[in-house]
């Protein structure tokens, strides 16, 4: 088991480096000079030169890449052109909001998605099944901005139960978490249902029944552990995706999370900030996949062997 985990971790390193390299090349080699972006087109050439030298922009790309990576390893992503602050500080400030939103949304997603999927599978083709599947289809299909605006209209404007936007207490996170959680819950519920239905056809389920187990024990102890493998993977990737910043939700509900920072960086052509947030997000997605692999190995002994 320890060897398996080590192997997975080691494999993740080149992936992260590869993504970093592609990202660096895309943002630095494409036409468009950062200095002109920063200062506009009509500035003295001497001033441009001095800036280029100060920012080491005349060094070969590879040298700059290595400098960037060694910096990133020390949690140093450079300075934002626009805000003139350390990128790492900007990430650190926005991250807590994103984490809060992620935790709330993931809770909503799992607490609704998994039970709905189980009920739909066990009682499949019944009214309950149809209801949950319709509910999840809506969650998947409704665009976040539309569902978000609708909720703001109903719960904040009409009923006045919840605040419209902001991030000052947990109450502010209820609506964004519901909107985000609903869409993830839909995917989880459908995946849980189809996997559980498939698992219930296996011979070992018949064995468990022939043993005299209760149906609930057959489902929870014998079927679910097998059926959850792909679901766990999706859950981990979803959480990683949420941590990378739920751009749309954060914009609608005015939460200054990572997604907002990245979107602003794009709008301002703030390359160091954009590069930093994307690299950070990539790291989280890779970590999420790693976590999924490890959890699956705990659930299924066959994966551990290799």
């Amino acid at each position: 088991m320890a060897r398996y985990i080590l192997k997975r971790v080691v494999i993740s390193v080149p992936v992260l480096l590869g993504v970093a390299l592609v990202l660096f090349l895309l943002l630095n080699v494409v036409p468009g000079d950062p200095i002109t972006i920063m200062m506009g087109e009509h500035i003295k050439p001497a001033l441009v030169e001095s800036f280029r030298a100060r920012m080491h922009l005349d060094d070969p790309v590879l040298v700059r890449f290595v400098r960037y990576i060694t910096g990133a390893l020390r949690w140093d992503f450079g300075v934002s052109y626009k805000l003139e602050r350390e990128v790492s500080d900007l990430i650190r400030e926005s991250l807590p909001h994103t984490i809060k939103l992620t935790v709330c949304a993931a809770l909503v997603s799992w607490l609704i998605g998994i039970p709905a999927g189980i009920v739909s599978a066990v009682r499949h083709n019944t009214l309950a099944d149809r209801f949950f599947m319709g509910f999840s289809l809506l969650g998947i299909s409704l665009p976040i901005f539309w569902a978000g605006l609708l909720m703001q209209y109903v719960f904040a404007f009409r009923l006045q139960w919840l605040p419209v936007t902001g991030y000052y207490s947990l109450r502010y996170y209820i609506m964004p978490a519901l909107v985000l959680g609903w869409s993830s819950a839909g995917a989880i519920a459908r995946l849980t249902r189809s996997n559980l239905l498939e698992t219930m056809k296996h011979d070992y389920i018949r064995t468990a029944r022939a043993k005299g187990l209760k149906e609930t024990a057959v489902v929870t102890a014998h079927a679910l552990k097998n059926a959850m493998l792909p679901v766990v993977t999706v859950m981990a990737i979803q959480v990683a995706g949420l941590l990378g910043g739920a751009v749309m939700t954060e914009s609608i509900f005015g939460i200054p999370g990572l997604g907002r920072v990245a979107v602003n960086a794009i709008a301002d052509r703030d390359m160091p900030l954009l590069q930093g947030t994307i690299l950070f997000t990539t790291g989280i997605v890779i970590a999420g996949n790693l976590a999924a692999d490890i959890i699956c190995a705990f659930l299924d002994p066959r994966i551990r062997v290799e």
């Binding site: 011979d203 070992y204 064995t207 043993k211 097998n226 659930l299 299924d300 002994p301």
Partner: peptide, 18 residues
């Protein structure tokens, strides 16, 4: 399982892999 038990054709798939 206690008074009547049953064994099946496919030992490969009749045991729970996990």
């Amino acid at each position: 399982g206690s008074r009547i038990s049953m064994i099946f054709q496919e030992p490969m798939t009749s045991l729970n892999p996990v």
